[in-house]
């Protein structure tokens, strides 16, 4: 199936990407080719088949409820592009 420019723009917003107009055209073509290829999955009969999310189907992996050391605030902030010593700085979220 063909992907429209508007599809690419909609998905780009969801994906928090900002392709240029040229990139939108190229992505529409490239993604359409890949989507057409993966559309072949439709021919597989999967009635009554349970999805396999993980190759090792373990559930409820628990550990004792004991506090253990975690990263210090300074270590957690050390790689932040902008921080004020106590938190991550971002542009105003409200009232923007």
């Amino acid at each position: 199936m063909a992907l429209q420019r508007s599809d690419v723009q909609r998905v780009a917003l969801l994906a928090r990407l900002e392709p240029t107009p040229d990139q939108i055209d190229r992505l529409a073509t490239e993604l359409a080719a890949i989507v057409e290829y993966v559309d072949s999955l439709a021919e597989v009969d999967t009635d009554g088949v349970e999805p396999l999310v993980h190759a090792i189907e373990q559930t409820n992996v628990l550990r004792p409820d004991v506090a253990v050391a975690s990263l210090s605030r300074d270590a957690a902030l050390a790689n932040a592009p902008v921080h004020n010593g106590v938190g991550f700085r971002v542009p105003a979220v409200l009232g923007d």
């Binding site: 992907l3 599809d7 690419v8 909609r10 998905v11 780009a12 969801l14 994906a15 990407l17 392709p19 992505l27 490239e30 993604l31 890949i34 989507v35 993966v38 999955l41 439709a42 597989v44 999967t46 088949v49 349970e50 999805p51 396999l52 999310v53």
Partner: peptide, 29 residues
């Protein structure tokens, strides 16, 4: 970016069952 876009597309409203869920079932097969 191409793969992020492809994944976001396959997971977006209306396509989840046709792509992601379908792929997980084929994965079990």
């Amino acid at each position: 970016q191409r793969r992020i876009m492809l994944g976001a597309y396959a997971l977006s409203a209306g396509y989840y069952d046709a792509y992601y869920l379908k792929a997980l079932k084929v994965r079990r097969l």
